[in-house]
């Protein structure tokens, strides 16, 4: 058994991958027991991986080894403080779990200053861009020569659009007073339209990313699994044929179900 698994690990791996893929895709017909099993398999494996990774990548090198191997006895307090989380299961003393949660809230609040200074603040000055076209020039500041790249008319217009959009979108989120002034009101409206461009772009990119994953799974079934299971030449064709048969069966079952109970369905 052990030898069989070790020798055929790569083939078993491909079969497992294909079965898992088809098992989950069975939900596309309807919610069914097979899908539920594979869903729980996924949940179990993901939880197991999280637990194992937490131990091997975090707790073992950052807590256990320094305490046990390097003699840093005071690391035991990390364990004690960490155990405060588990007071959440005590009805009487659940407030103790809020101590560690509060500590992390405090840490996150303290780090917010650094995050703002490092991540967000630099974006404000860099949003102010030149809007007057100019050829490539050199300027000397305190004896240091700096080359400034050429700014074309198109580049200047793009910069202006960039700044207007930043201003308008920020204006949309300006709730300190009622937006009655026509300039503020209209710039906020323009900001909302610009955000629609952004959300459309994000939505489009998300659809493409999900479709790329779908194509990747089909490629896995046809090429990687197909070649391993049915040979180099006809592997992909065979799997494609099997998939077509499966799809035909699903379609038949769906149509049959529709005929039997036409009112059901979405």
């Amino acid at each position: 058994m052990t030898e069989l698994l070790v020798k055929n690990a790569n083939v078993i791996l491909l079969w497992v991958g294909a079965i898992c893929t088809l098992g989950l895709y069975s939900v596309l017909y309807k919610e069914n027991r097979l899908y539920r099993i594979f869903e729980h398999l996924f949940l179990g494996l993901a939880t197991g991986y999280l637990v194992a990774q937490t131990w091997t990548d975090v707790l073992l090198p950052k807590w256990w080894k320094p305490m046990w191997d390097e003699g840093r006895w005071y690391f035991i307090f990390i364990g004690v403080f960490g155990s405060f989380y588990y007071f959440i299961f005590s009805q009487k003393h659940s407030w103790i779990s809020r101590i560690i949660i509060g500590f992390f809230l405090g840490v996150a609040s303290g780090q917010a200053f650094q995050a703002y200074a490092n991540d967000y603040w630099p974006q404000i000055p860099s949003s102010f861009k030149p809007v007057i076209p100019h050829p490539e020039t050199q300027i000397t500041v305190a004896g240091k020569v700096t080359k400034i790249a050429e700014l074309t008319t198109a580049g200047a217009i793009n910069n202006l659009i960039f700044m207007v959009i930043v201003f308008c979108v920020m204006m949309y989120f300006f709730f300190s007073f009622e937006q009655k002034n026509p300039v503020i009101k209209n710039s906020a409206k323009l900001g909302r339209w610009m955000m629609m461009f952004t959300f459309g772009a994000i939505f489009g990119a998300t659809i493409m990313a999900r479709l790329a994953l779908l194509i990747d799974r089909i490629d896995y079934l046809l090429n990687e699994f197909g070649t391993a299971a049915f040979g180099q030449g006809s592997g992909a064709t065979t799997v494609f044929g099997i998939l077509l048969v499966l799809m035909a069966i699903v379609l038949y079952l769906a149509l049959k179900k529709d005929k039997e109970s036409p009112d059901e369905g979405v």
């Binding site: 967000y120 960039f162 959009i165 989120f173 952004t198």
Partner: peptide
Amino acid sequence: ILTKVNAPATRAIAVGLGIGSLAVGLRIW
């Protein structure tokens, strides 16, 4: 669209988000 419309709008949202998280952080702290 991605560089000249999406980027500034995302930047404005991010800056607002930063100011908001800073304010909330300060209140919690």
